[in-house]
């Protein structure tokens, strides 16, 4: 069974790496790194804030909004919604469906491969982003801010996002004929909009838990920002600091959700027919 899992995962990896999709994602990651470079090179800290407080705050905000709340959703969306769609469209599904491997096992192997690709791209993208941000002028905090540690926290959140969103979008791809469209709608409405709502609402989003992992090592007060208490509350709200779950419970919640999505996907893939397109009488 391990050999069969590995074979399917290898085929999925080849499809993911050989397709045009990965080029778009890589370009997007380079564009984000270029954005980080441009912001660092062109922006000037306001006089009331020193560079040692300004740049870490900007870095965290950018990682949060540009990476976590956008890219960490889009990359798994691109790879996970098409787990079977690629094989259906290319007509190769028949080779998988007529082998003595349970369909849920085939799906699991494909999911693992797609999640690995998403996670790898996100981690590399974040590394590039961090390098690009520090490239013009080096460490602006003078060693007070742990750039590597915070970036690794975001990378961990991205890996968790690749698994959580991967499982969710895989289910979308199996249930809906246009899984990508549904995924985009869900990603925007739930994970981008709802996640910035007050605490109770955003607790039903995956992003709430990813932010808890990403920001688990950050204390806004330690950044040295001089805010009014109201402004500080706003910053904390934006960064998701209000009653965040612990990193461990955030991991557990997202993994549980991923597991539930995979079980549902297994039920769907056993019950539904997926055939080389178009499924028409001949």
């Amino acid at each position: 069974m391990i050999g069969q899992l590995w074979t399917v995962a290898t085929l999925e990896l080849r499809q993911a790496i050989g397709g045009a999709k990965i080029l778009v994602v890589v370009l997007m990651l380079f564009a984000l790194a270029a954005l980080a470079f441009a912001v660092r090179a062109l922006a000037t800290p306001p006089p009331e804030l020193g560079p040692e407080a300004f740049w870490p705050a900007i870095y965290l905000l950018m990682l949060n909004f540009v990476f976590l709340q956008t890219t960490v959703i889009l990359v798994p969306l691109a790879f996970a919604t098409s787990l079977l769609r690629n094989d259906i469209d290319q007509g190769t599904l028949v080779y998988l469906w007529t082998r003595p491997v349970p369909r849920p096992t085939l799906l699991l192997a494909k999911f693992l491969a797609a999640s690995a690709v998403s996670a790898g791209l996100l981690v590399v993208g974040m590394g590039l982003f961090c390098l690009a941000f520090l490239l013009p002028g080096g460490d602006p905090s003078g060693g007070a801010f742990d750039w590597l540690g915070r970036t690794v926290d975001f990378m961990a959140a991205a890996v968790l996002g690749a698994v959580g969103y991967g499982a969710l979008f895989a289910l979308f791809g199996l249930v809906f004929r246009r899984g990508l469209i549904w995924g985009i709608a869900y990603g925007f409405l739930s994970e981008f909009v709802l996640t910035n709502f007050p605490a109770v609402v955003r607790e039903v989003t995956v992003m709430h838990y990813l932010r808890a992992v990403a920001l688990s090592g950050v204390d806004v007060r330690s950044l040295g920002l001089r805010f009014d208490p109201e402004d500080l509350a706003e910053v904390e709200r934006l960064l998701g600091f209000l009653d965040p779950p612990s990193a461990a419970s955030a991991w557990a919640t997202v993994l549980l959700l991923a597991g539930a999505c995979l079980v549902l996907s297994a039920c769907v893939v056993r019950a539904r027919e997926y055939c080389a397109a178009p499924a028409r009488p001949e």
């Binding site: 085929l11 080849r14 499809q15 050989g18 290319q90 007509g91 190769t92 028949v94 080779y95 007529t98 082998r99 003595p100 080389a276």
Partner: peptide
């Protein structure tokens, strides 16, 4: 499925 082999009509392959 272990006991069957299928040669499909589709002209589709992995690369």
């Amino acid at each position: 499925l272990r006991r069957i082999g299928v040669c499909p009509e589709e002209d589709a392959f992995y690369d």
